[in-house]
């Protein structure tokens, strides 16, 4: 368990490529090719792109669920997938299907128990993330009574329960209502303000454009554009989370 001498990047992708075998002929189909990215602690990277552009492949490689065919992925200086890297990663998978008979709190206990969180902090952290996720009242209900949005928020809670330094979120806004999406955007900024690096994939271009420090646009497995908001959008405004006019109206009507 060697500690790198100096960690300057929270997330690094160096010429990352992933291809999958096709049929029995020995041919391979590339999912991602030549992807190079860097993200510092405290920054938010939004990965945008159509379905099949390689967003989930990239996040899975960073989470250590798949190994690169070429290139390297590193988390806080450690190879992605190593025990050291996984100890500092929080990952939200694309699907939020968990054991339906279990309660939300029980599932978070399970996830926290498998993390490197000190046992004395587990209960307090679970309460904190349940509160953030708005699941405090439903915490002791079985998950088969949860709505899709509640399951998604529980998925987010498990990704954050062990206070990871790097947070990887695959389509985190999927299944969330406008209020939930705003809360998510605020949370992502809060995480960055705490010094955590956040990488998330999204189809919600406008929201991603507002809250990200860096934006990467993927298409057919290739990096089409990458840079800061200023470089790509010409915006010098600090990333902020605020409701759009229609969202403001919606929330006003909903909450009076």
């Amino acid at each position: 368990m060697s500690q790198p001498a100096e960690v300057s990047w929270a997330v690094e992708l160096d010429n990352f490529g992933k291809s999958y075998p096709v049929g029995w002929t020995g041919g391979r189909r590339p999912a991602v090719q030549g992807l190079s990215l860097r993200l510092a602690p405290g920054q938010v990277l939004g990965v945008l792109g159509p379905n099949g552009s390689g967003k989930s492949t990239m996040l899975k490689a960073l989470a250590g669920l798949i190994t690169p065919s070429i290139g390297q992925c590193r988390i806080m200086g450690h190879p992605a997938g190593s025990v050291e890297a996984r100890a500092v990663v929080g990952y939200l998978p694309e699907s939020s299907r968990f054991a339906p008979h279990q309660t939300g709190r029980g599932f978070l206990h399970y996830c926290a128990g498998l993390s490197s969180l000190p046992p004395g902090k587990v209960a307090a952290r679970i309460d904190a993330v349940l509160l953030w996720a708005g699941l405090g009242a439903a915490a002791d209900r079985k998950m088969d009574t949860y709505s899709k949005g509640m399951l998604q928020r529980l998925g987010l809670a498990q990704a954050l329960v062990h206070e990871p330094a790097v947070v990887l979120l695959d389509e985190p806004a999927s299944g969330l209502d406008p209020e939930g999406r705003l809360a998510l955007a605020k949370l992502i900024r809060e995480l960055a303000d705490q010094g955590r690096a956040v990488v998330f994939s999204s189809h919600l271009l406008a929201q991603a454009g507002e809250i990200c420090d860096r934006i990467a646009i993927l298409g057919r497995g290739r990096l089409l554009a990458e840079g800061t908001r200023f470089e790509l959008l010409g915006s010098t405004r600090r990333p902020v989370v605020e409701a759009s006019p229609i969202e403001s109206l919606y929330l006003e009507k909903l909450h009076g």
Binding site: A63, A87, V89, S95, S115
Partner: peptide, 18 residues
């Protein structure tokens, strides 16, 4: 396979679990 096809395996195997 219920773990693998759902989200649980992804949540567990991205933690420091061998």
């Amino acid at each position: 396979f219920s773990d693998l096809m759902g989200a649980t395996a992804g949540c567990v195997l991205t933690r420091p679990v061998r």
